[in-house]
Amino acid sequence: MEKNRENDEITIDLSELFMALWHKAHIVVLAGIAAALLAFIATKLFMTPMYTSETQMYVLSKQDGNANVTYSDLQTGTQLTKDYMELVKTDPVLEKVISETGIDMTIDELKGHITVTTPTDTRITTIAVENEDPKKAKEIANSLRVAVGEQIVAIMAVDAVNTVAEASLPTHPSSPSTMKNTAIGGILGILIAIGVIVLIFVLDDTIKTPEDVEYYLQLNVLASLPIKEGTAKTKKSKGISRKSYAKSFGKRM
């Protein structure tokens, strides 16, 4: 019988679990606040603000000057835009940008700071450059637009690459987001606190109530001694583990 008791599956009373969480709600809230504050401080002190500058260009193909432009021509021009996007990050273009701007970056490092996008069904290409120096971000973006424009004209045999919008000087950091990081930190703190409380609740196998004695040991409780409210529990008054109680009871039997 003792072996069967030790191998019993762990059952969780959801109402007791909810009450355990409710009684520890202040700890959960404090953990969330502490984690949010830690994330806020880490974002402000240890993360470098990055600035993003964007420039836009439009590739003017040869058939654009023809009055008899067909839908097929427009589709072809839209598909070629993907080729233009790939040319932005080619080594010759980036080498020229590094040479002109004098930035201390390798080609691979510069690639990681460049984002190229094209809105659906358009031939307008947007080049975004991220840098810790807002002036450098603007300078690199404009230099990149000019360099890739020359490359497109030389390779794709187009008429011209027109500037839709020059890069502007960013005034606010694009990353990191202090509010976002603070919110994520607070949520993680709350989840971790809840997880620890649930883990402690699940691993706690002490017998606390007469119902526990009847359920786990299959014994009838004849009497119980309630602890006076406001009296601190001593080590002797704390519940013992179910396994220890079962072993002790087995020896007596």
Rank of each mutant, 00 (worst) to 15 (best):
167 A>T: 06
178 T>R: 11
90 T>R: 09
79 Q>S: 14
92 P>Y: 06
204 D>H: 08
129 V>F: 07
198 V>G: 05
159 D>M: 05
113 H>V: 00
134 P>D: 07
2 E>M: 03
207 I>A: 03
221 V>C: 11
112 G>D: 14
83 D>W: 00
250 G>N: 14
133 D>M: 11
2 E>W: 05
14 L>E: 06
191 L>A: 15
120 T>G: 06
229 E>M: 02
40 F>S: 13
41 I>W: 04
220 N>K: 06
110 L>H: 05
122 T>W: 03
54 E>R: 04
192 I>V: 15
54 E>F: 02
175 S>R: 15
94 L>Y: 03
214 E>G: 08
170 P>S: 03
83 D>L: 10
120 T>W: 00
86 E>V: 12
217 L>T: 03
128 A>F: 07
29 V>P: 03
201 F>A: 05
81 T>K: 03
22 W>N: 09
206 T>N: 12
104 D>F: 06
184 I>P: 02
213 V>K: 03
158 V>T: 13
210 P>F: 09
250 G>R: 13
26 H>W: 15
186 G>P: 10
48 T>Q: 12
69 V>P: 01
111 K>A: 08
126 T>L: 05
160 A>C: 04
18 F>H: 07
122 T>Y: 04
155 I>C: 00
97 V>C: 10
225 L>Q: 09
191 L>C: 11
8 D>W: 13
201 F>Y: 12
43 T>A: 13
217 L>Y: 04
110 L>D: 07
38 L>D: 06
96 K>M: 07
235 K>E: 14
